[in-house]
């Protein structure tokens, strides 16, 4: 990941954080790590829980991997990282079960599937095992917040369209017919596809605009 190089304009830490959140948002821009999470983003609360759980695992695992980076031989990198991540996920799993049994039942096996989220392992392998604790934790926070944001975008849209409510509060009045398919699996595919389309359209538009400005300046 060459995310650290472009830091001339803003202070280092802020730029890293924002980069993960917006420019290289893992969920919406690169479409990474969506497998185990798409299924449970059918409501805002579920998406929030899932996002925060992933954020926690991502940040703590990056810090631990980065702390241990000089002790772990290269041959056993993958296994060590997997064990660290699996331990953290087990902690999160038990914690969510204790805090809110209702959400725990709704999320089910999918909390444990955070282990195989490609973002976390990718981050541990590609970034945290090579940089300092502060940097990798910061970068992980940015990526994790971006991922949470992406999940919230999905969960929010699916809940509003699928049930006509937002966190239990009805939005559209009685005559709104809930678009039930949005809360079901196909809706997850449609909404993510829609977001990807919207973002790539937006990027193209802003890209064209800035390219036009540069051309004018050159002329």
């Amino acid at each position: 990941m060459s995310t650290v190089t472009n830091t001339a304009a803003a202070p280092y830490s802020l730029a890293t954080l924002l980069n993960g959140m917006w420019k290289e948002n893992p969920g919406l821009v690169i479409a990474l790590g969506m497998c185990p999470t798409l299924a449970v983003t059918n409501s805002f609360v579920n998406a929030l829980t899932m996002g925060l759980a992933t954020l926690f695992v991502l940040v703590v695992s990056s810090a631990v991997v980065s702390l241990l980076r000089s002790f772990v031989p290269t041959q056993v990198h993958l296994v060590t990282h997997l064990v660290i991540i699996a331990t953290l996920v087990t902690i999160v799993d038990i914690a969510i079960g204790a805090i809110s049994p209702q959400v725990y039942r709704a999320l089910g096996v999918f909390i444990q599937l955070i282990v195989v989220n490609c973002i976390i392992l990718g981050h541990a392998q590609g970034y945290a095992s090579k940089s300092t604790v502060y940097r990798s934790a910061l970068n992980a926070s940015g990526t994790g917040l971006g991922f949470t944001l992406a999940l919230l975008c999905l969960g929010g849209v699916r809940e509003v369209l699928g049930t006509g409510e937002f966190m239990g509060a009805p939005l559209f009045g009685e005559r709104f017919e809930p678009w039930a398919v949005m809360a079901l699996p196909p809706g997850g595919f449609f909404v993510l596809g829609g977001w990807l389309l919207a973002i790539s359209w937006w990027k193209r538009r802003t890209g064209k605009k800035s390219a036009g400005v540069e051309q004018k300046q050159a002329a």
Binding site: A31, P185, P186, G193, L196, W201
Partner: peptide, 22 residues
């Protein structure tokens, strides 16, 4: 269209397929 030539198109196709499997 170029905008859709990414994961977006496959996701929407998968959504329709998922609808069929429902």
């Amino acid at each position: 269209p170029d905008v859709g030539r990414s994961a977006a198109l496959s996701l929407i196709v998968a959504g329709i397929l998922s609808l069929a499997f429902m």
